[in-house]
Design a protein around this nucleic acid. Structure first.
Length: 535
DNA sequence: TTAGGGTTAG
């Protein structure tokens, strides 16, 4: 009885608050509502907010709701909350709008706390509009047990049949790897919309089951750009650029997501030229790039190593509306400028970072190392350690390579010790190859040979190749012959090894051996590949 | 029974 009375009085209070809200004039409410629809930036939303307050429309439920959904659109959940807190009697619709703003932009615990507050404070129970945003937040955070309990609540509320709720559930289970649950929810749906199908496709793509994802795609009654892009992305990430390309060509209306899926797909699979071609096609169609397109483009450019192209990309990005200060854009830009030899630009971008991370340090160190400034690379490495960053295996590969290129034998040794003894990183074949190269270049051929023979892991051709190169520099014919024989076994068709040994013989005036080696190469059908460079 | 709120892709 008392519960009934309490809920009645809350509901009554809400009803009174809403019904007694008398807008100063309905025409001013309408004009503000129209203003909101045309709002394009957070700045103009703030101006409209000021007008809402001036006209006494702050408590208007419809205006408030629309205002909150624009806060969501401009990623301003705190702004949404501050406006919501001033509402005297928010109804369920307004609560739902606030929850949506937080679900999209706040951490999951904030969203969950808000949902609990809604249940306590709102006179009405949550409805089919409440759960999709809550579930979407669980899905993005991969909060498995929480999402399952939300599912239980949905069942208790009798809302599982709603298409939006069910689609959000399919997305949640699909994204959490529970494809069986997602699929049974999908199969038992009387009505689906295109988003439902897309959520199912994406679940299979994320789980790596491209065959089933494709079956769902083929069965869809109608597709949109999202349907294509999910699958294109899946194919591209799996390295199947041919299938990705076919779908991309079939896509009737490409949006920036689909362009970026192709560009970064090619870039990540070591096809920078193809990535660049797709980008140019996009550029010629006057499509505005976003940060993902630009990161893909920069990655392609750094693989090509062209300074001219890097300068063009840099200018292009500066002139676009892309936020260069975003971490992944900045990292890609530092990497591109480093690899293409624009060290001044790379360094100034690096300096502009408030929180420098491992990746950016490594990019810049690698740049200095590649362009003959090993000492600068080592200075950066020391600075990195002083800042308290923990170097990982890749960092040491970069550092050891820098030492070896610059002939910093002692520093290299110290770094190798630091890596193994203090950071307890097990040296990889790459690390060993760097050390062999370092010792070999310094003329310590025996030490290098001992190191390669004492390796607990199988040395790769790179390590042997580095040593063979060192034998050529220091004219060690007998060790050179031993190493070369080893290399002829590992990579019998690599012309470079034959050429190196032939050079060793030539320097020692052993022309008979040179000629014998050439005969051997001809016999095996090996031809020297002409010099090749992208630059 | 005005209006206003929800799901999918890096």
């Amino acid at each position: 009885m008392s519960v009934l009375l309490r809920s009645f009085s809350t509901a009554a209070a809400t009803a009174v608050a809403v019904s007694t809200f008398s807008s100063p004039s309905s025409s001013s409410a309408l004009s503000v509502a129209a203003l909101l629809i045309s709002c394009r930036s957070l700045r103009s939303l703030e101006q409209i907010h000021a007008r809402i307050i001036r006209k006494g429309l702050e408590q208007h439920p419809v205006i408030a709701t629309r205002f909150l959904s624009f806060c969501a659109a401009f990623s301003a959940p705190a702004y949404a909350s501050s406006a919501f807190d001033r509402l005297s009697a928010p109804n369920l619709i307004v609560w739902n709008a606030l929850l949506a703003a937080h679900a999209r932009h706040s951490p999951l615990p904030t969203t969950v706390a808000l949902f609990n507050l809604l249940r306590r404070r709102c006179s009405l129970p949550p409805d089919a509009f409440t759960f999709p945003s809550l579930l979407s937040s669980c899905s993005h955070s991969v909060a498995l047990s929480l999402g399952s309990s939300v599912h239980a609540t949905i069942l208790r509320c009798g809302l599982e049949a709603d298409v939006f709720v069910r689609t959000a559930l399919i997305d949640f289970y699909g994204n959490s790897g529970d494809l069986a649950s997602a699929r049974s929810l999908f199969d038992e749906m009387p009505k689906r919309n295109v988003v439902t199908w897309n959520a199912m496709i994406d679940g299979y793509v994320k789980s790596g089951d491209l065959v089933t994802a494709r079956q769902i795609f083929d069965k869809m009654p109608e597709r949109n750009a999202v349907s294509y892009t999910s699958l294109i992305d899946g194919y591209a990430k799996a390295g199947d650029l041919a299938s990705a390309r076919v779908l991309f060509e079939q896509l009737p209306e490409r949006d920036v997501f689909s362009w970026s899926a192709m560009i970064s797909g090619y870039a990540q699979n070591g096809q920078p030229g193809a990535a660049l071609k797709i980008f140019l096609e996009m550029y010629n169609q006057n499509i505005k790039p976003d940060e993902f397109v630009v990161v893909g483009l920069m990655s392609a450019c750094s693989q090509l190593g062209s300074l001219t192209l890097a300068k063009w990309v840099d200018l292009y990005v500066t002139r676009s509306s892309i936020d260069l200060s975003k971490a992944h854009v900045l990292a890609a830009s530092i990497d591109m400028n480093s690899k293409c030899g624009n060290m001044e630009r790379a360094a100034s971008l690096f300096e502009s970072m408030p929180n420098k991370d491992l990746i950016s340090y490594c990019s810049l160190m690698q740049g200095y190392s590649l362009h003959g400034a090993g000492d600068k690379a080592m200075g950066l490495f020391r600075q990195m350690l002083e800042e308290g960053l923990m170097p990982d295996s890749i960092t040491f590969t970069v550092v050891l390579a820098a030492c070896s290129r610059a002939g910093l034998v002692e520093e290299g040794r110290q770094c190798f010790d630091l890596m193994t003894n203090e950071h307890l990183i097990v040296p990889s074949p790459d690390h060993y190859a760097c050390m062999v190269d370092l010792l070999g270049r310094a003329g310590r051929l025996t030490e290098a040979y001992e190191l390669i023979r004492s390796m607990p892991v199988e040395p790769h051709a790179g390590a042997w190749g580095a040593l063979l190169g060192a034998c050529r520099i220091h004219g060690d014919i007998s060790l050179g012959e031993t190493i070369a024989r080893k290399l002829f076994e590992i990579e019998p068709t690599n012309a470079g090894n034959y050429v190196l040994l032939s050079n060793i013989y030539a320097v020692a005036d052993r022309w008979a051996d040179v000629s014998e080696l050439r005969t051997l190469m001809r016999g095996k059908g090996i031809r020297k590949v002409p010099g090749f460079t992208w630059i």
